[in-house]
Nucleic acid binder design. Sequence first.
DNA 1: AATCCATCCAACCGCGGCAGG
DNA 2: GCCTGCCGCGGTTGGATGGAT
Length: 189
Amino acid sequence: MRRPSSQKPSSSDSQKRSWSKEEDQKLIDYIQKHGEGCWPSLPQAAGLRRCGKSCRLRWLNYLKPDIKRGDFGEDEEDLIIRLHALLGNRWSLIAGRLPGRTDNEVKNYWNSHIRKKLIQMGHRDPNNPRHHRFNVGSVKSEPSNSVNNNIEDHKVLEPTSKPEFNLNAFPDLNLDLTLTAYCYSGDDR
DNA sequence: AATCCATCCAACCGCGGCAGG
DNA sequence: GCCTGCCGCGGTTGGATGGAT
């Protein structure tokens, strides 16, 4: 059994509390100086009254220089829908295909926008955990720029008992997340 | 103007995986 | 093999905000 994390914040720090500009700057300065890593010891070293996990989250989701803020484009939304059909709630994997987007951002966008949209259009609740991913084997593989076309595709999806998917259904998707340059050709905001 | 309600999203929590001792 | 600690992930929460009444 897992013991209580040593990173658990003290009771005074456990409340949700927004990051101030000063805190952000301290974190940025420290990471620029020492690099990422050693999160548990970072707060003390950087003079922050936060737990390491909180610092890590703040850096990865908001302070990192390559983070892209702002609305999701149609292409991005389309890609998220298709990747979610393939991968389920693997937000980090999905976010890995969207440069500058974080898993938290993708997850929030899915829950607040896309899920609602799909349900409104008569789909089954697409927000199922990874336990029953959709079977995408029957989906046509035509590359499409249209969100609607892809949503149509999803109407034939059914939950499967096995967490399997057919990569051939998405020949244009590059799921090699580790080595290859990103191949998404969305807008350049 | 005040209150209620729904929505969004930043932040937190708990857990699993993994590495090192 | 077991224990401990760190990292990263997905789920959830709660404050802020804006629209409706």
